[in-house]
Nucleic acid binder design. Structure first.
Length: 201
DNA sequence: GCGACAG
DNA sequence: ATCTTGTCGC
């Protein structure tokens, strides 16, 4: 399925800088397959939360690196259907093109909704060269000798995040957005608000 | 054959 | 992802 959908990914410079950005995250509750998908839509300029949705669901698909979307995407898509403020871009908690078949969660969600999307992972699937210690510094993220994204330092002397394009975006705009959503923490304010929302629900 | 491996 | 106290660094 990933190989079939991969050609649908569109790499392009966004027409306008996004005014709103959605944060998507999934929390797991209990030992069964119960999970909570949370989506928050923020105003990029003020970081104010404009909308938020929580959906409880269940999964039978195990966590398998490379097949992550089949575990979390279904619930996240259901949550996105309930969102009233359509976001200009989806900021996903995971990889986009930085994936073994170049179709991580961010690409999956972007293609299925046809909304611009980017992936911001807390960990890399492969080894990487650390960027300089100053905020804003980055290094190309390579996979099989191919540039699939960037490591990006969002906080001085703190582990970088792993940014890659999901759909209808380009890596330059993706990193610029991540930096704007990261005034004082390592992770984007979008994923932080979604994470907290899903954690208490 | 064994360990690694987004969340 | 999740279970958890103190602790090192800015």
């Amino acid at each position: 399925m990933q190989e079939r959908l991969r050609p649908l990914v569109r790499l392009e410079a966004p027409v306008r800088p996004p005014k709103t950005a959605a944060g998507l995250d999934v929390a797991y509750v209990g030992d069964d397959g119960t999970l909570v998908a949370a989506v928050t839509v923020l105003d990029v300029a003020t970081l104010a939360v404009l909308d938020s949705v929580v959906v409880r669901a269940t999964t039978s698909f195990p966590y398998v690196p490379g097949l992550f979307a089949f575990r979390e995407a279904p619930a996240l898509l259901r949550a996105l259907e309930q969102v009233k403020v359509l976001p200009d871009v989806l900021v996903c908690d995971g990889q986009g093109l930085a994936h073994p078949r170049r179709f991580g969660l961010a690409c999956h969600l972007g293609v299925l909704t046809d909304l611009p999307s980017i992936g911001v992972g807390k960990n890399s699937l492969g080894p990487y060269d650390p960027p300089g210690s100053a905020r804003g510094e980055w290094t190309p993220l390579l996979l099989d000798g191919e540039v699939v994204g960037r490591t990006l330092r969002t906080r001085p002397n703190v582990k970088p995040v792993f940014v890659s394009v999901g759909h209808r975006s380009d890596i330059e705009a993706a990193c610029a957005l991540v930096l704007r959503l990261t005034p004082c923490h390592r992770l984007p304010e979008t994923t932080r608000t979604a994470d907290r929302l899903g954690r208490i629900s």
